[in-house]
């Protein structure tokens, strides 16, 4: 895993309670979203896209609006330069 993704995962892990929600990062390759890592457990609910840029997208289940904003900010902070 590349350093910024590793750091991004560490930062997210401070915010995601393992049993109540799930987030996972994917690399965008055409129509495919290739799984990179996940935090939390499968919630068996409809996934939503929290944040994305040209290269990556962050998907989640069972997250509220405030957390969505926080995750988006962290995503932009760590992965923003990747799409430059």
């Amino acid at each position: 895993m590349e350093p910024e993704i590793f750091a991004f995962k560490n930062k997210l892990s401070e915010l995601i309670p393992a049993e109540e929600m799930k987030v996972w990062l994917c690399k965008k390759e055409g129509k495919r979203r290739n799984f990179i890592f996940k935090l939390g457990q499968e919630q068996f609910s409809t996934p939503q896209t929290v944040a994305e840029n040209q290269e990556y997208c962050l998907l989640a289940q069972q997250i509220d609006e405030q957390l969505k904003k926080d995750l988006t900010a962290i995503f932009n902070h760590y992965l923003e330069r990747r799409c430059e």
């Binding site: 495919r32 979203r33 290739n34 499968e42």
Partner: peptide, 26 residues
């Protein structure tokens, strides 16, 4: 359906879903 590969439910991650519950839910 083409949802799994467009939502990152592939490879190692997909194995987590290899349960009948997954089929019913997704």
């Amino acid at each position: 359906c083409t949802a799994c590969y467009r939502l990152g439910r592939t490879g190692e991650h997909f194995m987590e879903f290899a349960t009948p519950g997954f089929i019913k839910r997704y």
